[in-house]
Amino acid sequence: MRIPIAATGAVLLACGAAALAAGLGAFGAAAADGPLLDPALARFAGGHGWFLPVAAGVAEVLALAGQLWLVVQVRRVVHRWWPDVDPETRIRARAAADDLNRDARAMPGVRDCGVRLSGTADRPRLLLRLACAGDTLISEVYGELGAGPVERYREAVGMPDLPVVIRFRPDLPRPPRRHRAQPEPA
């Protein structure tokens, strides 16, 4: 989604910079003191019959592209919480998530586990959040999870290539803030 953002930014920057240049007199003092909606533009549109329909068509296409962009983003947000899979897979995923949760909690150092299937039918994701002790052997837990429990989850939901995204959250207290030494009472 970065390309449409960059295109929008480039167009806005170019328009803003051109307006700044016009206002500061880069195109001549007459242009700087001229109205924003120049009567010459209306005359041009009146003299060329094709201009307004073509401009309207371009604006319409851009508006449709914007709507499509909006729909894609809303769809992505919705499917982050509500995966786009059939009801049967959803039921199997729920049962498999319980197994995965139990297996993950049994690993050394793991205190809590959150499992969520997300994404669209063509791009599903399994999201795992693991809360663990501060000195957990994270590399080993990471490898073992992928080799055992996650593989069983993939088999259970029938998605052998399901990508899994694991986030580790070591359970460590915030470091204490440094306090200025208080003068001792006399």
């Binding site: 449409p4 953002i5 604006a59 914007g66």
Partner: peptide, 13 residues
């Protein structure tokens, strides 16, 4: 960006 493009271009169209 999507809201800006949709509303701006929609009104212009």
């Amino acid at each position: 960006g999507a809201l800006l493009v949709t509303t701006g271009c929609g009104v212009a169209a």
